[in-house]
């Protein structure tokens, strides 16, 4: 049985006339609980756009979480709410568990990780395990919006499907708007409610065919 949606925290994430790097005039409205996929050629500025939304990069334009403009929150408070999971996750402590402040046994199981993983050394993790743990680490902090940069790049097909299901469920459960950078058209079909594509310096909405 799916968990009931947590509607109280549900907020949309909206971008208006955002400009960063070569990208100009990006306007986008991400509804709570829905996944929007972002695609585009390598080097077109997908990751930079996500960094701008997380306010890790200077940018122009107006970004709001619900009614709250980015600038009214401090940098870290904004990023705690609008969380970016990078393609290449970084780990600073020796053991995995030190990176988690909340209990997340259920998530480990859902992502196909063994329950003892939290006691392991970071050095022995595979790239696929790191990627799933990075998702879990971010989600365990209960962000209100999620930015994912190729979250399943290092995973086999079965695990990719698991992750997609789990992420979709979490998005609906917590009412999180999700912006998901993806290349695989099959994956975009499976997870996305909307699809936007970077062409040149613009963002285009792709109609479903």
């Amino acid at each position: 049985m799916p968990a009931p949606p947590d509607t109280q925290a549900a907020t949309s994430l909206s971008l208006e006339a955002v400009a960063v790097g070569a990208l100009e005039d990006v306007s986008l409205n991400l509804a709570p609980g829905e996944i929007t996929c972002l695609s585009g050629p390598s080097g077109s500025g997908k990751s930079r756009l996500l960094r701008a939304i997380a306010d890790l990069e200077p940018h122009e334009g107006d970004i709001r979480l619900g009614e709250q403009p980015q600038a009214t929150l401090s940098g870290h408070a904004w990023r705690r709410a609008v969380m970016l999971v990078p393609a290449d996750s970084q780990w600073w402590a020796e053991d995995v568990g030190a990176h988690f402040d909340h209990d997340c046994q259920a998530g480990l199981e859902a992502l196909g990780l063994c329950p003892e993983t939290l006691g392991w050394q970071v050095a022995r993790l595979s790239s696929g395990e790191k990627q799933r743990l990075a998702l879990l680490r971010a989600l365990s902090r209960r962000p209100r919006a999620l930015l994912l940069d190729e979250p399943t790049a290092n995973l086999d097909h079965a695990t990719t499907l698991r992750c997609e299901t789990w992420l979709g469920e979490r998005a609906r459960q917590y009412g999180m708007p999700v912006l998901w950078v993806a290349h695989d058209p099959e994956q975009i079909k499976r997870v996305a409610k909307h699809h936007v594509r970077i062409t040149g310096s613009r963002l285009e909405t792709t109609p479903w065919t």
Binding site: R79, S89, W92
Partner: peptide
């Protein structure tokens, strides 16, 4: 690493 820590809030 520092940026990833910032991303986590």
């Amino acid at each position: 690493v520092i940026e990833n820590r910032l991303m986590l809030g």
